Simulated scan of single mutants.
Amino acid sequence: MALIKPMEPLLSKTIKENPAFLHQIKWDGVRGITYIDHGTYKVFTKKGHERTGFYPELDAITTLFNGKSGVIDGELIVLDEGSKPSFNRILNRERVRTTHKIAYYSQKYPVKYIVFDIMFLDGQDLRPYPTEKRMDLLHQTLSKSSSITLTDSFDDGHQLYALMKDKNYEGIVSKKRNSPYIGGKKHNDWFKTKIFKKMLTVIGGIKYDGDRIKSLLLGIYDEDALIYIGNASIGLTEADMQLIKEYTHALKAEKCPFYPIMKDKDTLWVQPLLTCWVSFLEWTDGASLRHPKIIGFSSEKSMTATGKEYTYNG
């Protein structure tokens, strides 16, 4: 079977109030499409990269699945100490590329698989079926375990959004009850309503356009490694730029502080000592912040910038 292009929700600034929609939690993780075939399975990311064997927490899926073959869609997540999905932690798992590290990372960052759709069952293509019908079939076909579970659906989107905001989750997804499963974003059926977040970040570089500061290169710490998470310029004031220029000489670094080492022309690398708060909408597939905005500089120590997310009300 050819790989299925996953259906992606469209960004919406408002919550769908129409009763034709059901609402689900927007899980902060990595998309996982699982192909089950007569007691074996393979799992692929949204971009089609096979990750079978790198998530042994999914091994029980063949016994939980009540069918000979099928294709299911879900999100791979890792919870933090507060039982909240942490995108930074699932990225730590997704970055693992050698199998001899799997046992260590499975214990440190155990994965849960939250399943929310089924596209094939015993050779039958379910994609033309309405979302609500596919959800019913999914609940009839897949049992739950400690690491594999099914997402719930809710009728009141505003109530769910308020709950997700209170819990500091990513947001909600609203789906038309009668919508088919359409790969990609060429549809008008699934929508995501995001909750803005803020995060403490470390400044590791300054990108220039001539003599003018163009943007700041930001990172967060994963143990002792400073991981690059994107550039930000929106929110920088003239006073901020002047302050950065005053510190530049004292903080200048000989090499890139990020891991892995980056090469970027017109960039001045600095010692990772300055921290700043950044608001953002979500993470991109490339593990960088989407729509980052600098809120202000911080007196927090750089090693405290570990990727913890906070709700931001602006």
Rank of each mutant, 00 (worst) to 15 (best):
Y129P: 01
E246T: 08
D80C: 13
A305W: 12
K84E: 03
T151E: 07
Y259G: 00
V278D: 08
F65Y: 15
K186H: 15
I148G: 05
A287P: 05
I4C: 08
D166P: 01
L76F: 10
F44R: 02
D59L: 04
G296I: 14
D136Q: 11
L217R: 10
A225T: 11
L142T: 10
I227T: 03
I182N: 07
M1P: 00
S279W: 04
Y41A: 09
L126A: 02
L160M: 10
K214A: 12
K112G: 02
Q124W: 01
K47T: 13
T52M: 07
G48H: 05
F21C: 03
S12I: 13
K175P: 11
R127A: 14
I148S: 07
T62I: 13
K252G: 00
L216K: 03
L289K: 01
K68N: 12
K293D: 00
V71L: 08
Q271R: 10
S12R: 05
F297I: 02
M199Q: 13
Y129S: 01
D285I: 06
L281V: 11
E94A: 08
Y228H: 09
T284V: 11
E238S: 10
L163T: 12
C256T: 12
D264Y: 00
L58M: 14
K47H: 06
T40L: 03
G314C: 06
A2D: 14
D136S: 07
L142V: 04
K167V: 05
P56K: 10
R290H: 13
I90R: 03
F258K: 04
P56L: 12
I36Q: 02
T52H: 10
E309C: 11
H249F: 08
S215L: 04
T141P: 13
T34H: 04
I213K: 01
L91M: 15
S233I: 00
C276W: 04
V71S: 03
L218D: 03
L121E: 02
I220W: 00
K5G: 06
T14M: 11
Y208S: 06
Y228R: 03
C256V: 08
T52A: 11
D209P: 02
S147T: 13
E300A: 15
W190K: 07
A250V: 15
F44M: 04
T45N: 11
F116Y: 11
F120P: 00
P110H: 07
F258G: 01
S179N: 12
L243I: 07
P292I: 02
G204M: 02
T98F: 09
E50W: 02
G235H: 03
G171A: 09
M119L: 15
N18Q: 09
G286W: 07
V202Q: 04
S153E: 10
K252F: 09
G48Q: 06
A287V: 09
K46H: 13
F280T: 14
I4G: 02
A253D: 12
Y310Q: 15
L274F: 12
R51F: 14
I229Q: 09
P257I: 12
L150S: 04
E238P: 00
R134A: 05
P257K: 09
Y221T: 03
L243V: 05
D28Q: 07
H139I: 06
F87R: 04
R97W: 15
I148Y: 03
K186E: 14
G307R: 01
Y105G: 01
D189F: 05
